[in-house]
Nucleic acid binder design. Sequence first.
DNA 1: CTGAAAGCGCTAACAA
DNA 2: TTGTTAGCGCTTTCAG
Lengths: 367, 367
Amino acid sequence: MTNNSQSPKKRRGVTIMDVARASGVSYATVSRVLSGYEFVKASTRHRVMEAVEQLGYVANLQARSLAGGRSRIIGLLVPNLDNGYIGTIMRGIDQELERANYDLMLYTTHRQPDNESFYVNAIANGLTEGLLLVTPLVATTYLKVLREHSFPYVLIDQVDGADNSSSVSATNWQGAYEATQHLIELGHRRIAFITGALVIQSAVDRLQGYKAALADSGIPIRDELILEGDYLQRSGYEISKNLLQSAVPLPTAIFASNDLSAFGAMDAARECGLRIPDDISVIGFDDIPQASLVYPKLTTVGQPLEQMGKVAVKMLLEQIEGRNHQPRRVTLATQLVLRDSCGSHQVEGEEHSNTVKRDRRKPIQLN
Amino acid sequence: MTNNSQSPKKRRGVTIMDVARASGVSYATVSRVLSGYEFVKASTRHRVMEAVEQLGYVANLQARSLAGGRSRIIGLLVPNLDNGYIGTIMRGIDQELERANYDLMLYTTHRQPDNESFYVNAIANGLTEGLLLVTPLVATTYLKVLREHSFPYVLIDQVDGADNSSSVSATNWQGAYEATQHLIELGHRRIAFITGALVIQSAVDRLQGYKAALADSGIPIRDELILEGDYLQRSGYEISKNLLQSAVPLPTAIFASNDLSAFGAMDAARECGLRIPDDISVIGFDDIPQASLVYPKLTTVGQPLEQMGKVAVKMLLEQIEGRNHQPRRVTLATQLVLRDSCGSHQVEGEEHSNTVKRDRRKPIQLN
DNA sequence: CTGAAAGCGCTAACAA
DNA sequence: TTGTTAGCGCTTTCAG
C-alpha cells in the first residue's frame, strides 16, 4: 500500500523541546530566554541562543498564542482592494506594523457585508490581537461585540457617531470647505457637488463643508447642483453626464466627494466636449495615487491616508499593550493639493470681488 | 492593590466545551460535527448545531491548527505595496481565496530583503498552510527550505530557473515580441528599450523578445538604445531623460519593460517637449490600473495579473489539499492592449514595406 | 455512533 | 536561577 495520505500532513519543525535538549536545559528555560525574561544566567541564555541559532528554531505562533502569549498579529478588515485608497492606507499600516514588529492578517469583506459580524467574531476569538477597520458602511452592530469583549480596535476614516470607538479620520468638513472656497476664489459660482453615499458620515461632512463655504460667500445653494453619488467612478460618470447634458446653465465646476468620482466626472466632461479646466473645473477628494496620473492632473483635497494608517496602528498598539484604553478620536488635517484640473472662471457682470478670505493653511502646489 | 494588570489579558470566548455542555454530548462529538464527520447521528448533529448557533460559537483557529487541524490561512509574501501591480494580483488572490474559504496573511518584505528567509521560516513553522510568493528578487535560497519541508508554495510572476517550483507567470518573451512588432508595424525603426532589473528572469525574457522581434524584421539591434532600468518610475524617467537629451538621432519609440517605467518615460518625453504619440511613441508592460488613467492612455502589454493571482491560489490549494504535488509551471498569455500612446512613424526613404506578419493573437482596443 | 484521553508547542504559575 | 506542571482549545486515535 502506497503512502500517499490524502490529507495534508502537518510537517513539524524544530520545537522548543529540541532547543532544550540541544542546550541541556528544561524547555521552560528556553521559553524564558525567548521571551526575554530577565533572570536567566547569562551563560545559560547564551547556550540557548546558540542552539536556537543552530537549529534555526522559530517559535510556533499558534502554540504561543494559545498558551496565553502574544501572537503579534493584527487584523485589517477592508471592504475590497479595488482602488488605491485602501492600498495607500495599507502602506501606512504596514510601515508602522513593521516598526512594531507585528504581522498583518487581511480580511476582505467585499463578500457578505452582513457577515462582517462573523468575521469580527472569528477574529476576536482567534489569533488577532486587535483590529483595524476600514469599513465605511459597517452595520455598527458588531462594534458593540468588540467593545463588549473589550477587544482592541480602531476605525479608519470613519467615526462611530453614537458610540465611543477609537478612530482616525480627516477634516472632511474643512477639506470640503476649503476646496469649495478655492473654486469660489477662482470665480466659480455654479459649483456642482457629487456626494458620497450619505449613510457615511464623512460623505455628509463633506457635503456640509461645501454648503457652508457657499453660504459664507453668499452663494445660494442649489439643490439641483447637489447630486447623490456613492464614491464610485461609475456613478461619478453617470451623474456628471446626466448633469452636463441637462443643466442650464451648466455648472462651471464640479466638486466630487472623492477622487474616483472625480475621475468619472472628468470622463463625462470630456465626452460632452468640455475641456478641463478651460470649460469646466473638477476637484476631488482623497488624493489617491492616481490623482496625479490622470490628465489633467487632478486638483484635490489630500487626505493623509498613509498617515492615517500609521496613526491607527499606533493607537491600536496603545490599546493592545495596555497603555491606553480610553477611546480616542484623532482627526488629521486634509490639505488642498493644487494641480491642473481647476481654472479660473470669469464671473459675469461682476468685477473680481475680493472674496471672503479666512485664515487658512497654505495649499500645496504639486506636479 | 489595584487590579490593573499591565499585560493585555486574554479574553476567552465560547469554546467547544461550552457547546458540548449545552448540547449534552462530549466535546469530541462537537468536534466531529464541526469537522463534518459523517457518522454522527442526525439528531445529535442537530442539537450540537443549535448550541453552536445559540452560543455564537466560533472555532479558535490556533487551537484547531495546533491540534493538527487546518488553519485555512495562506500567506502572501510581497516586496511592498507601492503600486497597483501587487494590488491587482492581490485582488485575484483574494477572490479565489474567498471562494475556497481561506484567509490571508500578508507579509511585506520591503524591509530586509535578506531576512525574507526568516519569514519563510516563521511562516512554514507557523499558522500558514501555504505560501504565495511575489518576490521577484528573492534570493532563491529559501525556496530550498520550503521544498525540504515540502511546504506548499507557488511563485507568482517569477520562475525558479534552476529548481522546480510551481509558478504562474506570463508570456514575457512573446508579449515583448508582439509589442515590438507592433511598433515596427507602425513604422518605427529606432526603438529604445528600457529593461527591468536583469537579475529578474522576466526582465531578461522581455529583453529577448524585443531583440528577437527586431532581428526578425531585419532591424539592427543597437546597444545604445537598450538601457538597463529597474522597473521603477524614477529610473524610467531618468534613463529616458538622459536618452532623449543625448541620443542622435532620437528614437521614435520607447518600449519600457513595465508600465511604471513607461510612466517615467512619458514624463521625460514631455519635459523634453516631445508630444506623445506624435513625436515619440511609448509602450509599456503589465497593464496596471493606472495605465488607462495616464495621459495619453498607455498602450501596453497586458499581463493577466488578476488571473495570475487566481491561478496561483488554485495551484496552491491543489498542493495543500493533496491533490497534486508535482511542481507545475503555468504560463498565461499576455495581450497587447492598444491605447493612445503609440502612433505611426513615417519610415524615411522606404515605402511602407509589408513587414513580417506572423500568426498572432488579436490585440484588443481599449479605452 | 460516541466518549475518553493523548497530545499539538508554548506560557505561566508554583516549586525547588 | 531553573525545573515541573497545568493548561490554552481543538483534533484524533482508541475503545467502547
